[in-house]
């Protein structure tokens, strides 16, 4: 149970980072924290205490297998997260070139 609570705290840390920090890079880091906490949650779903790797062999009872599907899901989600982070950081670099600042309060060309 404690692991799930820690996982949720990690989520809240990320949310806090997005909401309070003014540096664009720190916002990206906060977003990463949120996503990582979700990945952690997905891995925890399939976890069994003293479980075994899900490789088909005669020696292990099926009840001992950890669920392999969340692991596959997390790998996919990490790859997708990498793509979104790359896009976000590209945008951060372009914003720095245009505005000469990483401060989100000074990036205000849009109004209304």
């Amino acid at each position: 149970m404690i692991v799930y609570i820690l996982c949720f705290i990690l989520f809240l840390v990320g949310l806090f980072g997005i909401l309070t920090s003014r540096n664009i890079i720190k916002i990206v880091i906060g977003l990463s924290f949120m996503e990582f906490s979700v990945y952690l949650f997905l891995v925890l779903i399939g976890y069994i205490d003293n479980g075994q790797a899900p490789i088909l062999s005669d020696n292990i009872a099926a009840a001992k297998y950890v669920d392999p599907l969340p692991q596959a899901m997390v790998l996919t989600a990490i790859v997708i997260g990498l793509a979104t982070k790359a896009m976000l950081l590209t945008m951060a670099i372009r914003i720095y070139k245009k505005f000469n600042t990483f401060d989100i309060r000074k990036v205000t060309s849009l109004k209304g």
Partner: peptide
């Protein structure tokens, strides 16, 4: 992207 990333999470 920031809001979309939160939605994704």
């Amino acid at each position: 992207q920031v809001l979309g990333g939160m939605a994704t999470a």
